[in-house]
Computed example of a mutant assay.
Amino acid sequence: MESQHVAQITKGVQRLTGSKNVRIKTVINPSLVAGFTIRYGNSGSKLIDMSVKKQLEEIVAQLDIGDV
């Protein structure tokens, strides 16, 4: 991920959480297919999931077709 994208995500997390100090830790997770997830809050208790994997899971659930 390019540094400009990380900076944009950092600003978004700051707005979302109201925190001025945000640390971004980049971890590659091939199971997400594409996109990203953000964990924040006490011990990462909150999650924003912007991955293709999550989108596919939601489509499967809406179509009620079981596991893909």
Results as ranks from 00 to 15, higher is better:
59 I>T: 12
4 Q>E: 12
56 L>F: 09
29 N>W: 08
36 F>Q: 00
10 T>K: 15
38 I>P: 01
36 F>P: 00
61 A>H: 11
24 I>L: 12
56 L>G: 12
44 G>I: 04
43 S>D: 10
22 V>E: 02
46 K>H: 07
53 K>H: 12
64 D>L: 12
13 V>Q: 01
56 L>T: 04
52 V>M: 08
54 K>R: 13
18 G>H: 01
51 S>K: 03
15 R>C: 01
63 L>T: 10
45 S>P: 05
53 K>L: 09
50 M>S: 13
60 V>H: 15
22 V>I: 14
37 T>H: 00
53 K>D: 14
62 Q>A: 12
44 G>S: 05
59 I>L: 09
5 H>V: 06
21 N>I: 09
35 G>C: 04
45 S>G: 08
51 S>Y: 01
42 N>S: 15
33 V>R: 02
57 E>K: 09
46 K>A: 12
66 G>K: 06
56 L>R: 04
50 M>D: 10
46 K>L: 12
20 K>I: 11
37 T>R: 10
38 I>C: 04
20 K>N: 09
57 E>F: 07
28 I>K: 15
38 I>A: 09
38 I>T: 02
57 E>G: 08
48 I>Q: 05
35 G>K: 00
9 I>V: 12
3 S>T: 04
40 Y>P: 02
47 L>H: 02
30 P>I: 00
47 L>K: 00
15 R>S: 03
10 T>M: 14
63 L>A: 14
67 D>N: 14
12 G>N: 12
58 E>T: 11
35 G>N: 02
1 M>L: 14
38 I>Y: 01
32 L>A: 03
35 G>L: 01
58 E>W: 13
21 N>V: 15
4 Q>T: 10
54 K>H: 05
1 M>D: 06
17 T>D: 06
24 I>M: 03
30 P>H: 03
49 D>Q: 01
41 G>S: 08
57 E>A: 01
